[in-house]
């Protein structure tokens, strides 16, 4: 990340272990002198201990299972935070997340008390933490397979779209003739939401699955192509001059000069593509493949099985946020040379 010399200087400055703290407009948080106890984390331990006590001691007014197990889980959270706060190696990170750990304890108390303990938010529209867990556990086979199907469709569709987009963008920026023919198509058909093609795709494609993959592919392809093309067109002539005087051929110029130079823009396209692939995924599953989390949400809503629907939504959050995190991690690796890269 930094030159080793610079890293040494930074590391010499504090003894509490590194990581977690972020540089930027807020300053270098937590880079103090000596060890400072993570106060907010200790407070979070208290909040979660209270949450465990409330869960275990207050009587349930809703008919829910697993209450004592849930209380034990809350107690374990309190214990885990306490232990981590005392381990010097992760103290910095725990300090950073301390306020959030406390806040999530508040949220848990509110949720548990307003549903299971007082029945203010009642079934079928709302569900308690243990009710959500019960719904998910009872249907875990279907939920897991739905999750995996969504993941598969997302990975296949996004990968195909990203590869196609990068290749189209490169060839448009590199060959005038390709640009002449592809640009009008890109600009007229590209902005149409991929889901608008659904009826047509269902007719044309041999299976709804291949049709859904295609729909995802074009949803990703459009933004990736536009940004790859503009990124590569914007690469300064000087870079090519340097590479050419050093003996580079056209393959080197494309893959080792143009693409790395355009990579920041290409990643912007990939993020936009990922966003539209989520939307397309849900629509494709609801109307097309009749499988995956999108379909599961639609299906459970149909007969008012709200707790199970919430369970699918939780998994949907895991899927989308997970995919975003993976892409951000990839970007942080690929663009670690950029001075002030915003990290995920």
């Amino acid at each position: 990340m930094t030159a080793s010399a610079i890293g040494d200087v930074e590391r010499a400055g504090h003894s509490g272990g590194s990581g977690g703290s972020t540089a930027g407009p807020y300053g270098k948080g937590g880079r103090g002198v000596g060890f400072r106890p993570p106060v907010a984390a200790y407070f979070a331990v208290l909040v979660w201990a209270v949450a465990a006590a409330l869960t275990l001691l207050l009587p349930d007014r809703q008919d829910v299972p697993y209450t004592s197990a849930l209380g034990v889980v809350a107690a374990l959270v309190a214990l885990a935070v306490l232990v981590l706060a005392l381990v010097a190696r992760v103290a910095e990170r725990i300090r950073h997340w301390g306020p959030w750990l406390a806040a999530s304890g508040y949220w848990f108390v509110f949720w548990e008390v307003s549903t299971a303990k007082t029945d203010r938010l009642s079934v079928p529209y709302f569900t308690s933490p243990q009710g959500l867990w019960e719904a998910m556990w009872n249907d875990h086979d279907l939920l897991v397979s739905s999750f995996l199907n969504s993941l598969r469709l997302l990975v296949i569709g996004f990968t195909l779209g990203a590869v196609a987009g990068v290749l189209t963008g490169i060839s448009m920026a590199w060959w005038r003739r390709t640009d002449y023919w592809v640009h009008p198509i890109l600009m007229s058909l590209g902005p149409v939401p991929a889901t608008a093609w659904l009826p047509l795709i269902l007719v044309i494609f041999p299976s709804t699955y291949s049709g859904s993959v295609f729909m995802m592919t074009i949803a990703v392809w459009f933004p990736v192509t536009v940004l790859t093309r503009s990124g590569i067109s914007g690469v300064g002539r000087a870079y090519y001059d340097v590479a050419q005087t050093l003996g580079a051929g056209s393959g080197y110029l494309v893959w080792r000069v143009a693409v790395p130079a355009a990579l920041p823009q290409i990643f912007v396209g990939l993020f936009m593509g990922l966003g539209s692939s989520f939307i397309t995924l849900v629509v494709a599953e609801m109307l097309g493949v009749k499988d995956g989390l999108g379909w599961y949400i639609q299906w459970t809503k149909g007969w008012a099985a709200y707790p199970r629907m919430y369970g699918a939504i939780v998994l949907m959050i895991v899927l989308c946020a997970g995919a975003m995190t993976v892409l951000f991690k990839l970007r942080s690796r690929a663009l670690r040379w950029q001075k002030d890269l915003v990290r995920w």
């Binding site: 000087a238 870079y239 001059d241 340097v242 050419q244 005087t245 050093l246 003996g247 000069v257 790395p260 130079a261 990579l263 663009l335 040379w337 950029q338």
Partner: peptide
Amino acid sequence: GPHPSRALVFQDPTLFPWRT
């Protein structure tokens, strides 16, 4: 055309910023 036996050190360093 350019050839590696003729090297040019440019007025601007123009290092590739993505490479060490």
